[in-house]
Amino acid sequence: MAARGRGSACNGAAVLGAAAAVVIVGFLVMSAAPLAEAARYTVGDSGGWRFYAEGWAKGKTIRAGDVLEFKYNAVVHDVAAVDLAAYRSCTVPKGVRKMRSGRDKVTLRKGTHYFICTEPGHCKAGMKLAVRAI
């Protein structure tokens, strides 16, 4: 007569089912993690959106979904998202939307984004920013 163990085939199936459930739940949590990992950046760091901001993004790994926050004195500055030509020439295209809250937030899509201050002379003094989101 064969000896019987303490467990049975039914208990083994229950253990395997529970292990599979743990693996599935773990996978679901891990696949949702990138959505929760969007970084928030204050443009210009503690100094905020200011003159000579051009190089601020250098060395930073910015991803699609990350959020840029432009903090500045809304009485004397603003922010406008522009195209490359406007960025290079520091011109404000007709109809461009100017952000003026002093705490503007922009969620980035994949690609390169260009921002300028539209106040006269500010962009040419370096108050502009190009950011590439991967």
Rank of each mutant, 00 (worst) to 15 (best):
A13T: 05
A13S: 06
A14Y: 06
A14S: 07
V15M: 06
L16E: 12
G17P: 00
G17R: 00
G17I: 00
A18S: 06
A18W: 04
A19M: 08
A19S: 07
A19Q: 06
A19K: 05
A20Q: 03
A20T: 05
A21W: 08
A21V: 11
A21D: 08
A21H: 07
V22G: 02
V22P: 01
V22A: 03
V23A: 04
I24Y: 04
I24M: 04
I24F: 03
I24S: 03
G26R: 09
G26Y: 07
L28R: 11
L28G: 13
L28C: 12
L28I: 13
V29T: 09
M30L: 15
M30D: 10
S31T: 10
A32C: 15
A32E: 14
A32W: 15
A33M: 14
P34R: 08
L35F: 14
A36N: 15
A36P: 07
E37P: 06
E37H: 14
E37T: 14
A38E: 13
A39T: 10
A39P: 05
A39L: 10
A39N: 13
R40L: 14
R40A: 12
R40D: 13
R40T: 15
Y41T: 08
Y41L: 14
T42M: 10
T42Q: 13
V43A: 05
G44H: 09
S46N: 14
S46R: 15
G47E: 11
G48I: 03
W49R: 00
R50Y: 09
R50W: 09
F51L: 15
Y52S: 12
A53D: 05
E54G: 09
E54Y: 11
E54V: 10
E54D: 15
G55N: 12
G55I: 05
G55V: 04
W56N: 03
W56E: 02
W56S: 02
W56A: 02
W56V: 02
W56F: 08
W56G: 00
A57T: 11
A57V: 14
A57W: 07
G59V: 03
G59E: 05
K60G: 07
T61K: 12
T61C: 11
T61L: 08
T61E: 12
I62D: 00
I62H: 02
I62V: 05
R63G: 08
R63Q: 14
A64V: 07
G65H: 03
G65C: 08
G65D: 03
D66Y: 01
D66E: 03
V67Y: 01
V67F: 04
L68K: 00
L68A: 01
L68R: 00
L68M: 03
E69M: 06
E69D: 04
E69L: 02
K71N: 04
Y72N: 00
Y72C: 01
N73Y: 02
N73D: 06
N73K: 02
A74T: 04
A74C: 07
A74P: 03
V75Q: 12
V75M: 12
V75C: 09
V75F: 13
V76L: 10
V76W: 08
H77Q: 01
H77E: 00
H77N: 01
H77M: 01
H77K: 01
D78L: 02
D78S: 05
A80Y: 01
A80F: 00
A80E: 00
A80Q: 00
A81P: 03
V82A: 01
D83E: 09
L84G: 05
L84T: 08
L84S: 11
A85V: 09
A85M: 07
A85E: 13
